Simulated assay, not measured.
Amino acid sequence: MTACHMTRLLNMAASGIPQWNDRAETLHRRLEGLREADRDDPLLLKASATLQSLKDTCSKDTQNCNRLPCLRLYSQAILDITYYEENRLVDEEFANDDSLQKVRELIQIITEPETLFEESNASKQHFHLDMDVEECLHWRRGALLYMYCHTIGERENWNLSDQRTFHQCLKDGVYYLLKMLKTRSPIQLNNEVSFQDINTATLLAKGIFSDVHVLALMYCGEMCFWALSYCSDIPPGSDSETHNKILNFKEVGEKVLDTYVSVCEGPLNGHGWSTENAKKILEFLRMR
């Protein structure tokens, strides 16, 4: 998807007219470019079917084609297509010179359903972003930036050639992971809510709804550690404040890793989650 295509799509969103067929066609062109090299990949086949469903839904219900089914199908197609591209970048270990550009492009594409949702609220249309989809959008952006930073850091033995860009990637990655972890509200345990399994109750009360939530805690803590360890020359607030908030890596890192250790040594004890690295990072953070 070129910058021109993306600008055109965002302009459509700003006008309050999603024009789903045009969006589906833009995604279809990207999909076909990928399928030239991998015709039978299951993710791409699934995305193709989803895009066809989007076109069929709009053709059958032109008056209500701005509503939930179209946004859900469009979001799913984006998630499938970009997941295929993410896997390819990870398999290639972000080796090409344009890998960071591709990471940024994928993040921009994955952000579009969220942008549509925000625009729909402004124009008082009846859009809703499914909680599962919203959570996945945040996770995928945060995890992609985590994998990029981990791979580049290891390759350069953490002697980073571009500290400022690396620092910004870490900030953005932590931001998305925190949004993912806050998408669902923790279950408030009281006399009206009962659980037969106390471990499940404890996890839900801490806002842990899946293994991915546990992994997000550790990813987030590691990224905070990398920022403080290898980007110490970058003062707070000096780089682009994409999300209009200065991030306290020490505070965030301690909070997420405290939660990680407590759930892994508590309700998830014996389920294969190691806390050794988390405890080492916590010791480092508390000494700063």
Rank of each mutant, 00 (worst) to 15 (best):
E135M: 13
F166C: 06
L106D: 02
H271L: 13
L45G: 04
M6R: 15
C149D: 01
A14T: 10
K280D: 05
L181V: 11
R29N: 09
L79K: 05
V90C: 11
S59N: 03
V90E: 15
C169R: 03
R164T: 14
L177D: 00
C65M: 03
V103W: 01
L68A: 09
R141H: 04
C70T: 07
D162C: 07
E154L: 12
C70N: 10
L144S: 01
E283Q: 05
E105V: 08
L44W: 03
E154H: 06
R155K: 15
G33A: 04
A3T: 14
H213V: 11
C264N: 02
A122T: 14
W158A: 02
M180P: 08
N64E: 12
E119F: 00
Q163L: 13
K171C: 13
S99I: 06
L257K: 03
E85D: 14
Q168R: 14
Q76K: 12
D162G: 02
F249T: 07
A201S: 10
V90S: 08
D61N: 10
N191G: 07
T50W: 02
H271W: 05
I152Q: 10
L145K: 06
S229Q: 04
L34H: 02
M218Y: 04
D61P: 05
T202D: 15
C169I: 11
M287H: 04
K171G: 14
H5C: 15
N11G: 12
K250S: 12
R23Q: 10
Y219A: 00
M6Q: 14
T26I: 15
R72K: 09
R30S: 05
T57K: 06
V193E: 04
G142D: 02
S232E: 10
S210A: 13
A77C: 05
R39G: 10
